[in-house]
Amino acid sequence: MSILRILGRRLASLVPLVLGIVLFVFAVMQFSATDPAIAVFADAPVTPDQLDQFREEHGLNDPFLVRYFGFLLLIAQGQLGRSLATGEQVTSMISTALPLTVQLTLLGLAIAVVVALVLGIISAIFRDRWPDQVIRFVSLLGVAAPSFWVALLLIQWFAIDRAIFPTGGYINPSDSVTGWLRTMALPAFSLGFPVAAQLTRIIRTSMVEELDRDYVRTARGGGLPPWVVVGRNVLRNALINPLNVLGLRVGYLLGGAVVIEQMFNLPGMGRLMIEGVKNNEPAIVQGAVLTIALGFVVVNLLVDVLSLLVNPKLRSQKA
């Protein structure tokens, strides 16, 4: 019941946060210097009267607050507006692009978690010895390396020089699982490697702190094998802090996916958002950014719930 009460409070606190996100995204697009009407017609011959008629038909001449509350009404109805150029529903465009971005983010997250767990545990167990020194050096490089730079190196090494993986494109897993893995391997690793480096350092620090506690010495003195002590007690307690950090890193993965998708020519939310910015399509950009922001909020909420389940002390303190 305490978890349900805490969850209820968190959900209630998300309402003003979501409204603030909507207002920020809407305001940024509405105050753009580019006229959406001119962007839609591009170089086509059009008269000023036709531009004014287009703005009037699509509510572009309405006051800011009128457009904002109209956008909120659309959201309440489960809609995000239409493309000015094609008239297609933004929700339909997002439903097509979002699955790929989710796939890329989850693969990057899986790579980051697995690599960080393995390297972080090894680094803590072999503290101050050569495995620890090597892992700390590699993780330091990973923290300093942005995902797009890692992507460039991987493309050069494994796509151009050796032709092991394709340089870009996307194959649906329903068509070929092997092809899907080949097209997603480099983007996912590019996205997950910097996060893995950060989590490795955090897991190592948490593991070292736990290994120095009295209960670990007592368990070892009682004759328990080291792998039992680490797997049953140390690891569970040491993962509480990395779990909290992981929720924030998911936001990095979602944001990084926008850039990585462009580099590997993946038809996800990144391409949709950038095309919306290039063509000054407010509805598309607002819908894409809002979807990613809400995803980040939901993931952090789930991480908070997991933290409460894993850590009884935190649950009692919040209650």
Rank of each mutant, 00 (worst) to 15 (best):
G221I: 08
G20E: 14
F54D: 05
V46G: 06
G221V: 07
G223M: 13
I21L: 09
M207C: 10
D132P: 09
I274T: 11
L153P: 01
L109I: 09
L23D: 04
G169T: 15
I274D: 02
A283C: 09
L246T: 15
V138C: 01
V40Y: 12
V216W: 04
A12K: 04
V289H: 02
N237C: 12
L302Q: 02
V303M: 04
D43F: 03
F158W: 02
A145K: 03
R82L: 14
G168M: 12
L14S: 06
Y252H: 10
P225V: 02
L14Y: 07
L248Y: 12
P173W: 08
N279Y: 11
R136M: 12
F193M: 08
V305Q: 03
V143A: 03
R127N: 13
L154K: 02
G270S: 02
L302A: 09
V22Y: 01
T167E: 09
V115N: 00
L243W: 06
Q133M: 05
S139M: 03
T96V: 07
L17V: 14
V216Q: 02
L294H: 00
L272C: 04
T200Q: 08
R232L: 13
V250C: 05
P173Y: 06
L7V: 11
M263Y: 08
L314D: 02
A42T: 05
N280K: 13
V90A: 09
V277H: 00
L186P: 00
G287T: 07
G20A: 12
I121E: 01
L152Q: 07
A159T: 04
A76R: 13
G276I: 05
W227M: 05
L294P: 00
A37H: 04
S190A: 02
A185H: 00
Q77M: 14
V228G: 03
P173M: 11
L306P: 10
Q79I: 09
I240A: 12
L272V: 09
W180F: 15
E281N: 14
L11E: 01
V102H: 05
R5D: 03
M207K: 07
A42N: 06
P146A: 03
M207R: 11
A196Y: 04
L266T: 00
S32M: 06
V305K: 01
I284H: 00
P225G: 06
K318H: 03
A27N: 05
S206A: 15
A76H: 10
N311E: 14
D175L: 13
P45C: 09
S190M: 00
G59Q: 15
A44H: 05
S2I: 14
L17Q: 00
L109F: 13
E210K: 15
F54C: 04
L253W: 00
G87W: 15
S32R: 10
